[in-house]
Design a protein around this nucleic acid. Structure first.
Lengths: 335, 335
DNA sequence: ACAGTCAGGTTTACCGGTAACGTAGTCCAA
DNA sequence: TTGGACTACGTTACCGGTAAACCTGACTGT
C-alpha cells in the first residue's frame, strides 16, 4: 500500500503497464479498452489513492473547468445565505464547484472580484443585481463568459437573468397599503449610498403611493446596514419628524421587527395607531405575536434556478434568458 | 485595441519583443528587467486585456494554488453565514479564494466534498466540527493538506483548530440556571441524528444539572432542523409530557423564540412560570420585548481567525495550533 | 589587458491531462 | 485474398506559467 499523496495517471500507467492515455480513458469512463485493462487500472488507481487533477484537466486546451463564481453583496444577510444554499446544492448536484465572493453593494468591488475569479477560468459566474461597472461588462463580454444576473430582474441581461423586480415589490406594497386605507405613509431604509435594489423598492413604493393620490409623507434612509437596531432608531427618528404617519414600510424584515419593538416600547398600537410592513420574508417575521405584513422572496428557488440556468448555458443548451420568480406579498396583522 | 478574450504571456511577449519569461517576471513584480522593459510590458498587458491564468500557475511544479475550501453543515443558518463572511473577507484580503461546500451534518458528505475539492489542489481547507470519517482524515494526512477545524474545539486537531467547546456552553448554561434557582429543567433540541455539536451542548447541560443535584427532568429532541416552528411545537410536546418544568433550554435561539411565542400563545408567563434560554446569539434575540437569555457565539471572529491561521500555515509560518474564541453567556430577561 | 561582476535578459524543461491521430491485430464478407 | 471495419490500445503535441540554467555585453578593479 504505497502512498505519495499525489499519484498521477503516469504512476498508474507504470503500475499497470499501459499508457497514461488508456488510464485517462478508463478513469473518465470512456471506451476503447478491455474489461481486463479496466479492472487493473481501476484497482491500481484505488491502491495508489489517485485523486484526479482538475487543475491539469481545466488547464488543457479544452478548458473544461467546473468552477462557478458566485458574488453576493454580503453573507451576513440570511436571505443571501439562502440564495447561496440553493446555488451550492444545485451546482454540487450538477458536478460544479462554487467560488464565493462579496461586493458590499459596490460595483467596483464586484469588478475586482470578477477580475480575480476570472484568473481561475471559471465555467460561468453568478452576479447579484443588474448594476455593474463598464469594466465588468466588458470583461465578461470579451471573454464570452456565461453569466447569470440574479436577485434584481433585468429585461436586457448581459447573458441570463433570474429574479424579480424590486421596484414592483415596492409598488405592490404601496398599493396594498392604500387598499387597506392607509393615507400617510413613511419609509425607513438603510444602506442609502450602496443598495440600489433597496432604493428601487423605495421608489416603487413612493410611485405607487403618488399614483394613488397619497404620496409618501417622509422617509428616513440610514447609511448604516439594515439591522434590528437600525429599524428601531430609524423609526424613532422618522416619527420625531413626522408624528402623524399611519403606516411605515421598512427596507427589510429585520428593520421592521426593530420598528415593531420601538412601537411596543412607546406604547404605539400596531396596527391601530401605526401600520408596519417589512420585506424579505424572514422566518422570524411569521412567528411574531402579530404576524408581520411582508413580501416573501423565493431565495432558495432563485439560487437553484440560477445555477441550473447557468449550467444549461455552459453545456451549450439554450436556457430561458429571463426567469421571473415572483415574490408574494403576505398580509399579516401589522398593517 | 485588439482583444481576443484570452491574451497569454506569449502574446504580450510577442507584442513587446521580449521573452515570456521576462513578461512573467515583470507582471509578478520580480527583478531583472529595465524600467523601459517594465513599462512596455505593463502597457502591452493592459492593452491586450491580459488576465493571468492561475490555473496554469497552480498547475506548475510549484503548486502555488490560492484556493481554500470551506465546508459548513448548512448555509441557511445565519450563524454559518456569519462564519463564512469572516472567512471570505479574511481570505480575500490575503489573496485567496474560497470554494464552499455543505455537508448537512453528515461526515460522509464531508468526505465526498473533500474528495471533490482536493482535485482542485487547494492550498488548504476549513472544516466544521471535529468529527470526520477515517477516509477524510487519511486523505488530509496523506496529502499533508493544511486544515483548520472550526466551530467545535478539539484539543488534538488534525492540524489546526479554532473555536469553542459546545459541551462547555451547555454546562455553563446549566450552572447559570441553577444559580438562578431553577430546579426542574427541560431541553428542546433538533437534528437528533446529525448534529453532534448540538448534542454536545445538551450533554454538557445535563451533566452540569446532574452535578448540581437537580438533573435534567425531560428532553424533546426533534429529528427536524432547528427552526421557529420546531421550537414552538417542541416546547408544546415537552410540556404536554412534563408540565412542571420551571425552565427550558433550547438547541438555538430560533427555537427559543419559537418557544417564547408558544408561551405567549398559552399565557405562560416568562420568566415567572417558565424560564427560556437559547443559544447562538441571533441579533433578533436581543430586541425581543424581553431579551432572550442566550449564549453569544463569536461567529465572524471564528471565520476570520480560522482563515488567518490557515494562511499562516500555508505560508509556512507557525500558527497557534488551537485557538479558543470564548462564547459569552448573556443573561436576558427570559430566565 | 583581462578576469570578475552584474544587470538584463533568453532558453529549456516541466507540471498532468486530453485531443488528435497512428497502428497492430482480428474478424468477416465479397 | 483482400480490403474494410472494428477493437484496443500507444504516441505526440499542446495548454500557460515558472524554476533553473544559461547567455551576453558593459562596466569595474587591479
Amino acid at each position: 500500500m504505497e502512498r505519495k499523496g499525489k499519484a498521477s495517471l503516469e504512476d498508474i500507467a507504470r503500475a499497470t503497464g499501459v499508457s497514461k492515455m488508456t488510464v485517462s480513458r478508463v478513469l473518465r469512463g470512456g471506451t476503447g479498452f478491455s474489461d481486463d485493462t479496466k479492472d487493473r487500472v481501476t484497482q491500481a488507481a484505488a491502491r495508489l489513492g489517485y485523486i484526479p487533477n482538475r487543475l491539469a484537466a481545466a488547464f488543457g486546451a479544452d478548458q473544461a473547468s467546473t468552477l462557478v463564481g458566485i458574488c453576493v453583496p454580503r453573507l451576513t444577510s440570511g436571505l443571501f445565505g439562502q440564495v447561496l444554499d440553493g446555488v451550492e446544492r444545485a451546482l454540487s448536484r450538477l458536478g460544479y464547484q462554487a467560488i464565493i465572493g462579496t461586493n458590499a453593494y459596490e460595483a467596483a468591488e464586484e469588478e475586482a472580484w470578477v477580475r480575480q475569479v476570472s484568473s481561475w477560468r471559471p465555467a460561468g459566474l453568478i452576479l447579484t443585481g443588474r448594476v455593474h461597472t463598464a469594466g465588468t461588462v466588458e470583461l465578461l463580454r470579451s471573454n464570452a463568459l456565461p453569466v447569470v444576473e440574479i436577485w434584481d430582474l433585468t429585461t436586457s441581461p448581459i447573458d441570463l437573468s433570474v429574479g424579480f423586480s424590486h421596484r414592483d415589490c415596492g409598488a405592490e406594497m404601496g398599493q396594498f397599503l392604500l387598499r387597506k386605507g392607509r393615507r400617510r405613509a413613511g419609509y425607513v431604509g438603510a444602506l442609502a449610498q450602496a443598495d440600489v435594489m433597496g432604493r428601487a423598492r423605495m421608489e416603487g413604493f413612493a410611485e405607487a403611493l403618488a399614483a394613488g393620490g397619497h404620496p409618501l409623507v417622509d422617509r428616513e434612509v440610514l447609511l448604516d446596514r439594515p439591522g434590528f437596531y437600525q429599524g428601531y432608531y430609524g423609526l424613532e427618528t422618522l416619527l420625531a419628524r413626522s408624528p402623524k404617519l399611519d403606516v411605515v414600510h421598512f427596507h427589510n424584515d429585520e428593520m421592521a421587527i426593530g420598528g415593531l419593538h420601538f412601537c411596543q416600547a412607546r406604547g404605539i398600537r400596531v396596527p391601530e395607531d401605526l401600520g408596519i410592513a417589512g420585506w424579505g420574508g424572514m422566518e422570524a417575521a411569521s412567528v411574531l405575536p402579530k404576524r408581520l405584513t411582508t413580501t416573501v422572496v423565493p431565495t432558495t428557488a432563485i439560487g437553484k434556478a440560477s445555477a441550473e440556468a447557468l449550467v444549461a448555458r455552459i453545456r451549450g443548451e439554450a436556457p430561458q434568458e429571463v426567469t421571473v420568480l415572483p415574490t408574494r406579498l403576505v398580509p399579516g396583522e401589522t398593517a
